[in-house]
Design a protein around this nucleic acid. Structure first.
Lengths: 361, 361
DNA sequence: AGCAAGTGATTATACGTATAACCAAAACGT
DNA sequence: ACGTTTTGGTTATACGTATAATCACTTGCT
């Protein structure tokens, strides 16, 4: 034993079960620094005999040592936490992205923290301030409005916190966007319908729910034009919100008898699974059989799509994968001190064919 | 100005945008401690002139000061974070509880952190160790298996971390349980059906999905006995999992023609909304009209219940409220250094009557 | 023998905040 | 005029970890 170990002993007011590195050091007869080097697992820095290393690790296990992330974070200036901000935390889409992000985060020793955005007009300033207070290593953002995005930018840029927007379509040159390939998905769905012989195809979306819905409608029109299929104006239903009592009348008005049958759409694409479900329901109430008389394609592939009647053919959004990619990007930034380029990752979507689509009559 | 301010000046390697209390102190010409007292907002401890208080607050705002929670946590030994562990983070139920918990947490300056539990056999030990490393102030637990619960207990008791189980039915005397009043909900649903003239009532659940399903089945039988209604064995469907391909055959076998009509159930209670949806679908495929020929009641009130065909009458579980209560309890513990009594909070459920139930024929 | 290089540690200090303990000056009471 | 209280702060230190700088001792080389 070289050198003297001068630890203040018997600190007295120890909090419950809190074993520190110094406790281990005292027990083994080395300095706290040595314990830190060993437990950090990094082989750079200081050399430690293998036997000593083992003894330290063993003692740590014996005492039930749990490293103190608060102290670690403060000392290193990094927090190993990613913030997740969204207004729709209670929805399946958000939850699944969070799970994906969580997956890669935890693999790298990070965690995900949900940030508050509640009610009709959430206190964005407070929420984003908390992000800064936590010194999060990155921010996952979902479904924010433009003014909120601007606030977020202001708050994060001073701290050089990288942001990854997931499924949010504002054109940004200062942050990463991880989005799903909506165009590709719609194309797959459209080709599926066309292959089934459909050509009078409508679209149902709720424009004020999210910019996504609006964007998908535009993509639909674009693709229809590309395939040379005419789209009468009345085939495109854009309700305000995704609510049955709003969507049903619209669908009803379009499908209710009163015009020659050959002017009706034989299939619908939709901007979401729930929209698809209402559409099917309304059609059935009018005497249509789904899919024999009317094919319907959803967008999302929520769990309930499997349980719908009939099981819903739908464009599957890779929610988990979006979360994974976003988290991966943020971790890259954190390690490379990358300022956060204005890039964009597009995750492929795919079509899940179930029973809500059938050959056109 | 009394006393000398001896701050080391020009620290040089300042990290991006990191304004500290010392920076403010230097600017205003007071000590860091004074700034701390002012910014903490507590009026106890040290007295500060009102003018000085204003100057400090103003300077903090001017410099864009954001308090460093990492340092705060380390100094005070508290983390202001609640951990949320569950295997079903991607589901709506979990997400909504999380939102509720988040709501009361953020009101009190706390945040919620999602803990990793992925895949078929998650690494519970690692996940719970991380809870300890983070020194979370409390743990929200959902849908854990008994062995995981035991591990969690071991990990948390040394650190005196309180736990709140949400919707988990193991009988525990060492932790809080916040559960929904399933019995009350089932009673409401049953009374609703009885009032509609039903008395041949069946039950559909997936026993291996969660202990909840099993428990609900027991409650159902109990209540039926209480109301003096006989329940033939074949009326109680207990499939393994909540999957259409498993549930459909079971429902089909019961409802398919082949026996005298008056031996069939005229209504079903279920252990979950999705089960209810499959049940309705299978019945319809057999020629039943829902609700005219068969009434079905769900359990949960997920978003999709409104979009089901027909809109689902269902026992609404107050997911958000469960989360709120659980979080509130944990915060109480954190402040009262309450060791976490083995109490239990039961949140009322209520019945949402939509269109999947109708008078018995 | 003498010096460089390598080994295996140690010391010292920073990180930013909270808080107990202390202190100087002013106001006040008798 | 002198002790006491009040006002308005200051100093000092703890919290647990990371890490740069340093040091004692051993080994190898010429």
């Amino acid at each position: 034993m070289r050198g003297t170990i001068n630890e203040k002993i018997g600190s007295g007011g120890e909090r419950a079960g809190m074993v520190t590195m110094s406790d281990i050091a005292r027990r083994v007869g080395v300095s706290q620094a040595t314990v830190s080097y060993v437990l950090s697992g990094r082989q750079s820095g200081v050399r430690v005999r293998d036997e000593m290393r083992q003894r330290i690790l063993q003692t740590a296990a014996d005492l039930g040592y749990r490293r103190n992330d608060m102290a670690r974070a403060m000392s290193s200036g990094k927090s190993y936490v990613l913030g997740f901000v969204t207004r729709i935390a209670g929805q399946e889409s958000s939850a699944r992205m969070m799970v994906g992000a969580q997956e890669v985060a935890s693999e790298n020793g990070y965690s995900i923290q949900l940030m508050p955005l509640h009610g009709k007009s959430p206190d964005y300033a407070a929420a984003f301030a908390r992000l800064a207070e936590q010194r999060v290593a990155g921010v996952l953002a979902l479904n924010l409005k433009v003014d909120a995005i601007e606030l977020l930018r202001q708050e994060t840029e001073r701290f050089e916190i990288p942001i990854a927007f997931m499924d949010d379509p504002p054109p940004l040159d200062w942050a990463m966007r991880v989005i799903s390939d909506d165009r590709g998905g719609l194309r797959l769905a459209l080709e599926h319908l066309i292959a089934l012989g459909h050509h009078r195809i409508g679209f149902v979306s709720a424009q004020r729910e999210s910019p996504l819905a609006e964007q998908r409608r535009a993509l639909f029109l674009d693709l229809m034009a590309e395939y040379g299929l005419p789209v009468p104006n009345e085939f495109v239903l854009a309700t305000d919100w995704v609510k049955p009592e709003i969507v049903e009348p619209a669908v009803h008005a379009l499908l209710a008898p009163g015009r020659p049958r050959e002017t009706y759409p034989t299939a619908f694409l939709t901007a979401g699974d729930l929209m698809a479900m209402v559409t099917m329901r309304t059609a059935r109430a009018l005497g249509y059989r789904v899919p024999q008389d009317l094919s319907v394609v959803g967008f999302a592939d929520f769990i309930s799509a499997t349980f719908a009647d009939p099981p819903l053919t739908t464009i599957a959004q890779p929610f988990e994968e979006i979360g994974r990619c976003a988290a991966r990007y943020l971790l890259d930034c954190a390690h490379a001190t990358n300022p956060g380029s204005g890039a964009e990752i597009v995750i492929p979507t795919y079509l899940v064919v179930r029973a809500s689509t059938a050959p056109a009559v």
